[in-house]
Structure formats: structure tokens, C-alpha cells
Nucleic acid binder design. Sequence first.
DNA 1: CCTGAAACCTGTCTGC
DNA 2: TGCAGACAGGTTTCAG
Length: 274
Amino acid sequence: MPELPEVETIARALREGGRGGVPIPGRRIERAELLWSGCLATPTAEFQHLLPGQTVEAVERRGKFLILRLNTHALLIHLRMSGDVRVEAAGQPLQKHDRAAFHFADGLHLAFNDARKFGRLWFTPLPQTITAHLGPEPFDEALTPGAFHQRLSTRQRQLKPLLLDQSFLAGMGNIYTDEALHRAGLHPLCRSDALQPQHSARLLDSIRAVLSDGIQRNGASIDWVYRGGDFQNNFRAYQRTGQPCPVCATPIQRLVVGQRGTHICPRCQPLEPH
DNA sequence: CCTGAAACCTGTCTGC
DNA sequence: TGCAGACAGGTTTCAG
């Protein structure tokens, strides 16, 4: 489920509580339990020896990474396609597909659940080395329309795969990319260096608009992967094949771009930008 | 540098 | 009911 708005929603719940969640900053991890060792991307020995006893000092998000800052290290969580985290009372039984559990000293645990086993954990003293390859945050004030246009026009890439490239921009996934391109009236196969400055500005505005909407609605819940958000009720293109475009009523089409299901309005999103 | 395909996995849904 | 196939919110790696 997780793109930037979903990860942001989870980070906020872990940090501040709300939506039934409990804040975890200030809590000490007494025991770390690895239920499927394949999810740990850093050495197991450090994880087992240095993690117990550390206290959660802060919860942050960078791109789609969830970052728990501990005393000397950080725990990074990437949910990939089907990952999820739960905070619950220690008495609650672990669930099917739980891959790791962090037991707090005061009777709570944080469970990392991931049916498809794509998600990963990193336990490291230098979290910035893990996130170093990421491009700018979409809401970074330094990312001006001019700077964004510069980034777009110095590459010769199809727009959709470029927006999905985390080293170009951090946090976009399949849903929000389709939604942003629809709002901007740009075709996913349009070349990034074919955009005029006004197109780039429109795209940046659209990206920020769909991400803001998603965050405001606590993310999107689809299929059996559920988070509790309701942005899925506001999709204009994503998974709306055959349904009318909310702008011009033309049926939404599905195509495949870069191996990803892609949804467009053929009328609002012509190949030649205008 | 760019594109497309395959790989990593399990679960759900559709159609025969 | 069973079964094959398509599809799924992501990322990495490799061939051309």
C-alpha cells in the first residue's frame, strides 16, 4: 500500500498516536524478534546485540522509508508492496506474515508484517547512507518550479518511469503518479525533455496536490492491504479503466508503461503536451 | 544514458 | 469446485 502519503500517515501515527495508534517515542525496546531473517538487510549480529535496550527518540519519514531514530542507531523500514506495521498490547498474538517484532519495556510491541516478503529493515548507525540515493522530497522548498524543470529537461526519460525513479524524486508510486499526470494533463510516455517550463510547473503543482490530498485523507486503502485511509474514493484515473474521466467524461484507458499498470484519459493527456 | 524484462514473493480475483 | 492466468501500492539487476 505504501507510497509517500501512506508512509507519512504511518509515521504520524507512530509519532503522535491518533487513528487508534499509540506514540512510540520515549519507549525502550527490550527485545527484538526476527521471525523471517530475510527481511533484515544489515548484519544480524548487530541487530541482535545492539538493538535491545535502545529507546525510540524520534520517528521520521524520508521518501518511502520509515525511520525510527534510536540512541546510537536507527531502524529503517521500507514497506515495499505489502508491508505494514502495528503497535499493540504485548498480550496480542503475532499474526500470519509477521516478519519481525519489537517488544517495548512497558508492555507494547511493534510488529512488522509483510505477506510478500519484499519489505526490508536496516539497523544502522548511519541511516543517511541508506537514503543517500534518494532525490528531493516533493515538498522541499528548494524544489522550485525552475529547479524541477531543470531536473526534467536534463533527462530524456518517459515521464512516468522518471517520476517513479526514487533518485529523481522521493516518494511517488504507481497511484500518485497516475493521479498527478492526469491532473497535469500530461501523457505518461511524454519525454521529460519535451516539457516547456509551464508544463513542469503544472506537473509539480499536480504532484504536490495529489500528495497533499492523499496525506489529508490518511492515504489510500485498496484490496486486501488496508490502512484505513480513504483517498481511493477520490481517484480520477487510477484503477478507473472504462469509467468516465471526471473532467471530460471520456472513458479512462489502461495501458502498461515500464511494466506498471497505467491509467490515463486519452483526451486530457495527449502525447504532445499543451 | 535509456528501455524493457526478469527477479524477488504471496494473495486475490476472473474466467473457463 | 478446481485450476490456470493475470494482476497487485516497489526496487534491483541485467541485457541490449
